[in-house]
Design a protein around this nucleic acid. Structure first.
Lengths: 219, 219
DNA sequence: ACTTTTTTGTACCATTTCGCATTAAATTCC
DNA sequence: GGAATTTAATGCGAAATGGTACAAAAAAGT
C-alpha cells in the first residue's frame, strides 16, 4: 500500500533510488513512465472512452500487470489525475512563489498553462481537471472531491497572488483579491476549453492578454 | 432526408402542426420529448458512458425505433446538442436583445445560465457545450465545429452587449468590448465547470457578482 | 541445484455494447 | 375487407469490454 516499500529495513539511510535488490522477476516497465502514458490517453479520450486494451497498448504492460501495479481502471484514472496535478503544481509553484510584478507573474502562469493545454500529439488536450469535472465528477464522489480540491487550490494560489500585489500597491485599494482570483481561474478554464476546440494559440494568448490587462488595472 | 416531409403537396398552406394523416402505424413516442430525455442522459454522463440501452430505457423507445428516428448514437448526440443549443439560445436571446442597463442584462443572463447548469434530478449537469468540448471535440471534427460555433456565438452575443453599453456611455471610453466579452464567457465557463463539481449556487452567485462588478466598472 | 518470490504472458469468462434482420401490430388507402 | 405502409417488438450476432485464473519465466535466497 505504501508508495515506496522497496528497501529492506537494514538498508543504509542514504540510498533511496539505488537498486533495491527485489526478490522476484524484475519489472519490464517503469511505473512512472507507464502512468504518464496512461495519463496521456485519459487526457485525450476521457475515462469512459479509454479501454484497458488502449491503456495496455500505450503502456506496454499487459492487462494483469496493469491491474497489479495500479488497481482497476478507476484507480488508474485517479492515480493519473494525481500525477497530472502534481506535474501542474510543480510547473507553477515557483512562479506563484516568485517575487515578481503581478503582470509578469500572471503572464508566466498563463504561458505554462497554455503549454500544458496545447501539448499532445493528436491534438491539444486541455486541462484534466476541467475534463474530469465535465465527466466523472457528477457521479463519483471521490473524484468530485479531487476536482473540487483542484479548483480551489488554483483559486487560492491566485488569491495569494492578488493579495500580495495589493499589499505592494500594485492594485488600487478597492480591488477585491478574491474576485480577481476567480476571474484568473475563469480565464484558465476558458482557455482550457477553447484549446480542446482547437482555437489556435494566438487567439488564446489574445484572450489571456485582455484578461491580464483588466486584472492589472482593476479597481 | 428533409426534416419535414410530412404533408402531401396538395395540403393547405395554413396547416403545419395539424394531424398530417400519416399512412402506417402511428408512433408511440413524441420525437421532441424523446430527444429531451436523450439530452438529459447525455448531459449527465457524456457520450461514451451513455449506452443505447440507457437511451432506450429513458426515451421509452426500443433500439430500432431510436435508430430509425435519430440515426446512430453519434447522430443522436449531435441532434441532442443542437436541441440544447436551441433551448439555451431561446432562453437568452430576449435578454441579449433587451434594452436594459448593462448590469441588469448580465444579471439576468447569469441567472438563466445557473438555472440551466444546476438543473437535473441526479446532480447539476453543467453546460453541454463545455462538456462536449471536454470530451468528443478533440477527436471528432464535426462535433468540434459545433462546439466552436457555440463558443463564438456566446462571445459575439456578449460582445454586442458590451459594445452597446459602451455606446450608451455605461462603460468608460477605454473599455475593450471584445476583452470584456471573453471575460463574460469565461465566467460562464467557470460556473459551468464548478456546477458539475457541486459547488453550491450561493458560491456561484458570488463569483458571478464579483465578475459583474468588475465588468461594469471596467476601464 | 532447488526453493521462493515476483512478474509476465496467454487465454479465458461473463457481460455489455452497437447495430440490424425479421416478424408482428396498427393505421390509411382502395 | 384486403393491400399497402409505417412503426413496434423481439431477439440475434459479432465485437469489445473489464476483470481474472493459471502457467511459464526470471530473478534472489539457501
Amino acid at each position: 500500500m505504501v508508495q515506496k516499500s522497496k528497501k529492506p529495513p537494514s538498508a543504509a539511510k542514504i540510498a533511496a533510488p539505488v537498486a533495491p535488490k527485489r526478490r522476484g522477476r524484475p519489472r519490464a516497465y517503469e511505473p512512472d513512465v507507464a502512468l504518464g502514458k496512461a495519463l496521456d490517453l485519459f487526457r485525450r479520450d476521457g475515462f469512459a472512452a479509454t479501454s484497458l486494451d488502449d491503456l495496455s497498448a500505450a503502456t506496454g504492460m499487459n492487462r494483469p500487470s496493469l491491474y497489479g501495479a495500479f488497481g482497476d481502471k478507476r484507480e488508474l484514472y485517479i492515480k493519473s489525475y494525481q500525477r497530472y496535478r502534481d506535474d501542474a503544481r510543480a510547473a507553477m509553484v515557483d512562479i506563484f512563489r516568485a517575487d515578481a510584478p503581478l503582470r509578469e507573474r500572471l503572464e508566466r502562469i498563463y504561458r505554462i498553462a497554455l503549454d500544458i493545454y496545447l501539448s499532445g500529439e493528436s491534438g491539444p488536450r486541455g486541462c484534466f481537471t476541467v475534463m474530469t469535472a465535465a465527466s466523472e465528477a457528477v457521479s463519483d464522489p471521490d473524484i468530485r472531491a479531487m476536482v473540487l480540491e483542484g479548483l480551489t487550490e488554483l483559486d487560492k494560489a491566485f488569491g495569494i497572488c492578488f493579495r500580495h500585489a495589493k499589499e505592494r500597491g500594485e492594485l488600487p485599494d478597492g480591488a477585491d483579491p478574491a474576485a480577481l482570483a476567480h476571474l484568473a481561474s475563469a480565464t484558465i478554464h476558458t482557455i482550457a476549453i477553447r484549446a480542446r476546440a482547437r482555437v489556435p494559440r494566438r487567439e488564446l494568448e489574445a484572450i489571456v492578454k485582455g484578461a491580464i490587462d483588466l486584472m492589472c488595472r482593476a479597481n
